[in-house]
Design a protein around this nucleic acid. Structure first.
Lengths: 203, 203
DNA sequence: GTCTATAGCCAGATAGAC
DNA sequence: GTCTATCTGGCTATAGAC
């Protein structure tokens, strides 16, 4: 039964590929495993995406396009710093708890292939620091927050929100908590992280 | 010319393997490439370490044994919280700037193989949170710092120190800074991060 | 201990029938 | 569009000479 190309097959493949690539990485993933998970034939993967490399890039770009809007939220909307920090932290942690492999996947592959970043940087709605920088400089000048560069503050915000997912296995081991307790810790961070940051910068 | 086994060959291999594994991961690394970098024959790798798996484990354990004492510094020495945070931040960032691939390597492989962590957890001087926890609870009770759980504070400290290395490609791209400027930013973090944390927790 | 040659396997990719 | 069978190359690992 010949189905048209804009059928759900392509989506099924992408979903299966996403799961496998995200848990095993580009090199560790096997086309056969992706095919099995998508309940199709290995030859079909090549029919739809030509090569492992191209399938991987499709998965990566899709993943990145999920994450980018999250970053733009803190960089480019119009609320005050304090509001931004609160809403970003809450939204980001909520979002990633539903897609826990996402940040690690992105970061991992960005570390492997520096070429990728140049491509996406030009292409899509890649997050830029400019507006955020302007805002921070204004607030520092007005002495509503302690002196800090936009870059440093940005790094701090991202670190506090992203690392608990990327470094989960290490943290769990050192703190000696099981998955269930760790989930509660992350849940609490939705509010705690923003308090922490705001305390750190407010006068 | 028959050299004894405790010669430098074994070290050469380990050094080469470390570089390749750290930049390409277990699956992406090639025994041939490691052999080339160590200026020896591929067969020698197997002679010394039997298999890729065992060579990898040797590299991983060595890497982890470099990182573990760093963590213990903040968890188990006897200074005050404020001193600890200052010295840990300074020392950790200084240390990792010399081994920038280390944290990413550790984290990556811990995410891949959860079995590893159980092994090292029992084995070596694996960092434990107990003493740090006691100290934080005491300080909170004495109201010298704002209320915060030891786990959350630990996560915050680790995040702020580790993520800037793990997420470097992403941060560089968003902040639009080159390697040289990023190095300066990291340099500044040796002091800025501890100020940030201390401001966040002190009353 | 060190090397060359090769076994043996496995994965990505394609040919070609339906 | 979908499948089976197969090609082709590359990789780990070992055999065996020196």
């Amino acid at each position: 039964m010949a189905k048209s190309r804009d059928n759900k097959t392509e989506e099924q493949i992408l979903k299966a590929a996403q799961e496998i690539f995200q848990s095993k990485g580009m090199d560790g993933a096997r086309m056969q495993e992706i095919a099995d998970k998508a309940s199709i034939n290995k030859a079909m993967l090549h029919y739809y995406y030509r090569s492992k490399q191209l399938l991987f890039e499709a998965v990566f770009k899709k993943a990145f396009s999920l994450l980018a809007p999250q970053l733009n939220a803190i960089l480019n909307d119009d609320s005050t710093i304090e509001e931004k920090i609160r809403s970003f932290t809450h939204n980001y942690i909520t979002f990633i708890m539903k897609h826990p492999y996402l940040p690690n996947f992105i970061i991992q592959e960005l570390n492997r292939k520096s070429q990728f970043i140049e491509e996406i940087k030009n292409n899509t709605f890649f997050p830029k620091l400019d507006k955020f920088k302007e805002q921070i400089e204004k607030e520092v000048k007005a002495r509503t927050i302690r002196p800090i560069s936009a870059e440093q503050l940005f790094i701090n915000i991202i670190s506090l929100n992203v690392f608990p997912f990327v470094g989960a296995p290490l943290i769990k081991a050192v703190a000696n908590v099981d998955n269930e307790s760790y989930k509660e810790i992350l849940e609490a961070r939705k509010k705690e992280v923003s308090e922490f940051i705001i305390n750190a910068i407010k006068k």
